[in-house]
Design a protein around this nucleic acid. Structure first.
Lengths: 88, 88, 88, 88
DNA sequence: TCGGAAATCAAGACCC
DNA sequence: GGGTCTTGATTTCCGA
């Protein structure tokens, strides 16, 4: 069986190009993610400038997040019930 | 500076005994954990025997869990508000 | 045949109570499991404070675990042999 | 001086709306970030399907990342030197 | 029983 | 420097 290293050294140009494409795509996505994180930090900075405690704002957002996830969980549960009854 | 291997070969009996104690304690705790996991699996098996879909039961438990965490988050937020107002 | 949801909507109080009992029992077991995991983390923290590399301690425990299972394996094998020759 | 809570209870509709806007903006940004993370996971899944070890791909990306930051570091250093000798 | 999917956990980065 | 967030690895769990 081929090891990964064997695959790399023996693979054709098409395969190599494909792998390269994957890697570059991931790097672009990660760059986007980093940029968004920077945007978020910026907004918090603005909020602080505005005179609010960012810690509380963060907590408010956290609460809203678990509320949302609870709603999602309940919907999933309902879905399962309906599915079990054959009403979906 | 001493490497870990140095420590092991050079340490006195007391130190060695202490380390041995830690290891045995962890092993006991892990045995307990494994046993509990087995108990949980058993309960699910019983539930299935009983004729219920374990997937739904799991989801019910998940919903209850996020409900609990939401309650905890809201309390933490309230705490922060009160703290900010100086009423805590 | 009844679907799971039929069972839920049509089941009597006894059944419902039984299911509730299962759920609460699982929740208690999971709480126990979480607590034990916390205990284990604590012991590792203590070990680290003590000056040892927790990674190595983990390795030691892992090795002892496979050794234990190997021993069990061999004992089972021996048991089989003895049984086969009528010496058990 | 007003505490944060005072601000919340006493603030006018404009202020409240502004804060709400900030929160919603952050939530949108975080949703985007989550989505990108999902995309990345998807790409890795595709890579795995393709027959490569994702762990190695991750390593490659990590290496390229530090190489990029090292390059940036060196360029900054070069810049400083050139600046110091008045050649920039 | 194997493989993927998910939870758990410690380590590192990063911001305050 | 303290604390939170993120990431990467390990382990765990379930279905096929």
């Amino acid at each position: 069986m081929l090891s990964d290293a064997d695959r790399v050294t023996q693979m054709g140009d098409n395969t190599r190009a494909k792998l390269k494409g994957y890697i570059e795509r991931i790097e672009r996505l990660e760059a986007d993610k980093t940029e968004i994180a920077a945007d978020i930090r910026e907004v918090y900075a603005e909020i602080k400038t505005f005179g609010f405690d960012t810690k509380i704002v963060k907590k408010v957002i956290a609460v809203r997040k678990v509320e949302a996830s609870e709603r999602a969980e309940q919907e999933a549960l309902l879905e399962m019930y309906l599915n079990a009854v054959g009403l979906d």
